[in-house]
Amino acid sequence: MVETRLSLEMCEVMKAHLKAKQIPYKALAEWLNLSEVSIKRLLNGHQAMNMDKAIQIAALIELSMSELMKQAEERLSAWPHYSDEQDAAFYAEPGLFSFLTALHNGLSIHQIREQHDLDRHSIYLYLRDLEKLGVLKITGDLRFKLRLPKHTAFRKDARFPNYYKKSMLTNLQQRVCSAAKGEQNSHLMMATVAMTPEEFRCYTQKQEALFLNAIRERPENDGQEEEKVTYSLVVMGAAGDYYEALADIQRKPVGEVSEPVVGEPGKTA
Rank of each mutant, 00 (worst) to 15 (best):
F160W: 10
I55H: 13
S35W: 00
N44S: 02
A191C: 10
L146V: 04
M14I: 08
Q174A: 06
Q111S: 12
L246E: 15
R251I: 08
Y91Q: 12
F211R: 09
A48D: 15
L188I: 01
F211L: 06
T196K: 03
E183S: 13
M10H: 13
E114I: 08
A214M: 01
N105A: 10
F160H: 13
L246V: 11
A48C: 06
E67I: 03
K132L: 02
L28W: 00
L210W: 12
R128Q: 14
E73M: 07
L146D: 02
A239D: 13
G95R: 08
I55K: 11
Q207N: 13
M69H: 15
E36V: 00
D129H: 12
G263S: 02
L68K: 02
A59V: 01
L142V: 09
Q184R: 14
Q173S: 13
N33K: 07
A59G: 10
L142E: 15
A214Y: 05
E114L: 11
V13F: 02
S178W: 01
L233H: 02
P253T: 05
L18F: 01
G263V: 01
E227M: 08
L172M: 11
E220T: 12
V262Y: 07
S186M: 00
K132R: 11
E62R: 10
K70V: 00
Y203G: 06
N213A: 10
G134A: 03
I61G: 05
Y126P: 09
A88F: 06
V257S: 07
K137I: 08
R216Q: 09
E183G: 12
A48P: 15
E131M: 03
E114M: 13
R128Y: 14
D241Y: 01
W79Q: 08
K206H: 14
V261S: 11
D117I: 11
L42K: 03
L68A: 03
Y203E: 08
I112L: 09
L8G: 07
W31I: 00
T101W: 15
P94S: 10
H81W: 04
L169K: 11
E36S: 03
D119R: 10
P149M: 03
G95M: 01
Q205L: 10
H81P: 05
M14L: 07
A214D: 01
W31D: 04
M190N: 13
A153T: 08
R216F: 01
I138R: 15
R251K: 14
E264R: 12
Q47G: 06
G240H: 08
R147W: 07
L127S: 06
G263W: 01
L130C: 06
E131F: 02
L133K: 07
A27V: 04
P260A: 03
